[in-house]
Design a protein around this nucleic acid. Structure first.
Lengths: 242, 242
DNA sequence: CGAGTATTTGATGCAGTTCAACGCTCGTGG
DNA sequence: CCACGAGCGTTGAACTGCATCAAATACTCG
């Protein structure tokens, strides 16, 4: 027995748009089921044309691209509420791969009905565009981190963004949150080497800004960290939930 | 007197999706007019909420973000056929600024009718999502260039992508095309310093791969250039024209 | 207990930044 | 008509942030 959209555990968070009963019912007709995957499981592959689209109900993942010579660029971290597979839905090819980092629960939609959203529920179609636009917005910010910030600022930026998103999902307790990635993942996200990422994290720790060890990230001084990372302190925008 | 959508000079290029007469008529009802701007003119500002959306009819521009300390990250180059302002249309804030590099002619749409696209012409709404998704796709690729490639590969990648887009617009003659940006623009797009960009371009020139001087880019050896830049040689995907 | 994975730390080298200077072109004003 | 300055491209030299190499520690798990 799967969760009805009406009872979706994510709906209670302020970060997600309200939905009318009509919209909930409509989404329900799309929902094929739920999928639970183990850490490391591939969800979507770059270049593939997945028949399924997902909304993350719980757990964390990674979006990434591999280069011909084996390097990996992490595009971003995947959080609950994220919608996966939009690129495959609209173009018919993913521009990146997605894999689970922790165990994840996913709400599964059938891609063959994708077009119906546009013909039958314009409001939801608008939301899909919105999601793509937010992603574009975020990647623009990431490009600034990669292209124009030094390692310290870059790492600080990433940690702030993560903390903000976690906060919006109520996953932060007294500055601490589960962040079960490897340092290599962060390094690959910021275009840094593992070694330098490690040393940069150590410096942020010494400066009493943030500590990340054993899968737990603790932000000791959000103001200071945001300053180092040149980030505005603001909660993430309210976003649609598919 | 403005150009009717039916006679839009861009439609003849294979890179753009076919449109039905219905769609053309519909777009026509949106079109407010045409705008001609001079080089350097700002078109959209980061953080602003533009009342207008544009399709580029001719000319070239730049999307970019500025950092608090005055650095600039160029997000990408703007070509004819590009749709500007989608982020402002759907969220209500641009994530980056856009300015004209050459004189540009723009087809102007009124943002207040944006929502009508979703209620009245689902096919076009779908195209909007498509545009946002392609942009996301491209930015993912850019992140690989910034994060995981050295300067030589990065520059080669950018030149190949530019050449491919120019080719699709029939703006290439015997490997040569107008490319009226400054080296600083390319440097800001790739997260490199001006000096190093200059030296990297010089090396690509010596290697007989590509020459860019006096506003003209000439690709001497596309195969070789694509190899250095680790790019697949393929024409850009067919895209919707708004 | 040994193999595999992740974090940490030190040492060395280089790709790319920064600084500085020069040449060219073009527009402007005296 | 020439002088001057601004913008852009080019080149050399010195410096440095980060990558790379190497190795030790700590865990987990079969």
């Amino acid at each position: 027995m799967t969760i009805a959209c009406t009872n979706c555990p994510l709906r209670k968070f302020d970060i997600f748009d309200e939905m009318t009963q009509d919209e909930l019912d409509f989404m329900q007709t799309f929902k094929v089921g739920e999928l639970v995957v183990e850490p490391g499981a591939p969800l979507l592959m770059e270049g593939s044309n997945s028949p399924q689209l997902y909304t993350v109900l719980s757990g964390l993942g990674l979006r990434y691209k591999l280069t011909p010579d084996g390097d990996r660029q992490v595009i971003n971290f995947v959080f609950p509420g994220d919608f996966l597979g939009l690129q495959a839905g609209v173009m018919s090819e993913m521009g990146h791969s997605v894999e689970a980092t922790t165990r994840m629960t996913l709400c599964v939609f059938d891609r063959t009905h994708f077009w119906q959203v546009y013909t039958e529920m314009p409001r939801r179609a608008y939301d899909l565009t919105w999601l793509a636009a937010v992603e574009e917005h975020f990647l623009g910010e990431s490009m600034v981190a990669l292209g124009r910030r030094d390692a310290t600022a870059s790492v600080a930026w990433a940690l702030v963004r993560v903390a903000q998103r976690m906060e919006a999902l109520n996953l932060v307790t007294g500055g601490a949150m589960a962040f079960p990635y490897r340092q290599q993942d962060l390094a690959d996200a910021l275009g840094l080497s593992l070694v330098h990422t490690n040393k940069t994290l150590a410096r942020l720790r010494e400066r009493q800004l943030a500590t990340w060890s054993e899968g737990t990230l603790t932000v000791h001084d959000m103001i200071g960290l945001a300053e180092v990372g040149q980030v505005d302190i603001e909660s993430p925008p309210v976003r649609p939930l598919m």
